[in-house]
Amino acid sequence: MNIFRISADLLHLASFFILIFKMKATKSCKGISFKTQLMYTLVFTCRYLDLFHVLGMMITFNFAHITGLTLYNTFMKILFLAASYYIVYLMRTELKSTSDDARDTFVLWHILAPCAVLALIFNAQFTILEILWTFSIYLEAVAVMPQLMLLIETGEADSLSSHYMFAVGGYRALYLVNWVYRYATEPYYSNWIAWIAGFVQTALFGDFFYYYFVKIMSGDAALKLPT
C-alpha cells in the first residue's frame, strides 16, 4: 500500500459521490451514459467475487488471513459495488424520465466481446475467478467509451460532470504511478495485464483531460468540446 494507491482509491470514491450528488441535486441523469454505468457494475461484479471468500472467512471467525489491507480492500469493494449499483438503480427508477438513452447509442458488444476473448487468451491463470478478474480489467479500460461518445455528441458537459470524468479518469492514472512505484520497490512485482489496460484506460481520457484543463485555465463553467 502506498500514497499513490490510497489517493487513487479516494479519487475513485470521490467520483461516485460527485456523480450521486449531481444526480440527486439536479434530480436528473441528463448527459450521463447509462451504458457506461452499467459496464462499471459489471466490472466490479466480475472483479470482486473474492468478497464471498473474505466474507465467508469473517463469518466463520477465521481471521488468520485477514490483514488490515484485507479489511481496507473489503470495505472499499463493498462501497464501490453499492455505489455503482445504486447509480444504475437511480438511472432506471427515480431518474428514468430524465435519461439520455436516445443519445446513448454506443453498441456494448463492441467492447464486451473483445474483452471476453482477450480475457480468455491473455490471463495470469486459466481459472474462472482469474478470467473474470482479467475480463473486468479489460472492460474497465474501455467502459468509459459510451460516456465519451455521449460527451462528444452533447458537445459540452456541465462542471459537475466534468469533475466526475476527471475523478474517474484520474484514479487510474494514479494507479499507473502506484504500479511504477511497486515495480521499483518490490522485487517480484509485475502486473503487466493491469498496467497495459490501465495505460489504455488513462489514454482514453487523454483528450478529455486536455479540454478539462483548458476549461480550468480559462475559468469556464462548462466544459466545451470543439464543435
Partner: peptide
C-alpha cells in the same frame, strides 16, 4: 517461483 500474486488492489 512465479508466485500467483493475490489481487491486493481494487
Amino acid at each position: 517461483a512465479a508466485v500467483h500474486r493475490d489481487h491486493d488492489e481494487l
